[in-house]
């Protein structure tokens, strides 16, 4: 089989949300001794990009996005350890620290954003829900992260997003570590008011915003 055909199959496995196929092809790539970064970037990434396009055009909905993100994660969980073994690592779009702010125990929306960021090539460190605010900053510094994503689902916990932005200002890290905010009561206006760097209305929008922030 031509390598281009294999890449095409990989792309299709992601678009169709076929986890077994995505995993099988990943193993095949390893067995054939292919350049795994090339496999990811020319095989799987175009698949998730196409899924994003289909979402934007209204052809795909949340279930398709999630199923494709699952496939991507499954394939990456096979490929990445092999990359590490060979002394290489996956070229990522950037490193993201994500979590739901202190006092807030909602995690579904945050999980969706984390999954879509991961599927789209970001290295995501998920701190979970009810995360102490200083932990976002400490972890971002420790991991040399590019972006902190803050989720809040209540008007009473949204203020935590502002506090994290203020903490970064105090430490003169504002702009060096970008902040993205999201969650049901969060709006673009709120994001601007607290001087966050980005706001994502949904998981796919968050991916776009994150990519945009990385290119600045």
């Amino acid at each position: 089989m031509r390598i281009e055909d294999l890449f095409e199959q990989m792309k299709k496995s992601i678009i169709n949300g076929n986890k077994e196929e995505a995993e099988r092809l990943a193993r095949e790539a390893i067995n054939k001794g292919l350049d795994l970064n090339e496999v990811i970037n020319k095989g799987y990434v175009p698949g998730i990009q196409e899924v994003g396009r289909l979402w934007e055009e209204g052809e795909y909905f949340l279930p398709e996005l999630l199923t494709s993100a699952e496939c991507m994660k499954s394939a990456m969980s096979i490929l990445e350890p092999e990359l590490v073994k060979s002394g290489d690592k996956r070229k990522t779009e950037g490193k993201v620290i994500i979590g739901t702010v202190e006092g807030d125990i909602h995690d579904i929306g945050k999980n969706l954003v984390a999954a879509m960021l991961t599927a789209n090539g970001f290295e995501v460190i998920d701190l979970g829900a009810d995360v102490p605010l200083n932990m976002f900053v400490d972890k971002a510094l420790e991991e040399q992260a590019n972006i902190i994503c803050l989720s809040a689902l209540l008007t009473t916990t949204m203020i935590g997003q502002k506090k994290v932005v203020d903490m970064l200002k105090e430490k003169s890290l504002k702009g060096k570590i970008k902040v993205m905010v999201g969650g049901a009561p969060v709006t673009k206006e709120w994001a601007e008011r607290i001087e966050a760097d980005g706001y994502g209305e949904n998981a796919m929008e968050a991916v776009k915003v994150a990519k945009n922030l990385m290119s600045r």
Partner: peptide
Amino acid sequence: RSSELMRENQMLKGLIYD
């Protein structure tokens, strides 16, 4: 269980449970 499923990379199932 919903959160657990999501952690186990079963996003859609987790969302359905929620």
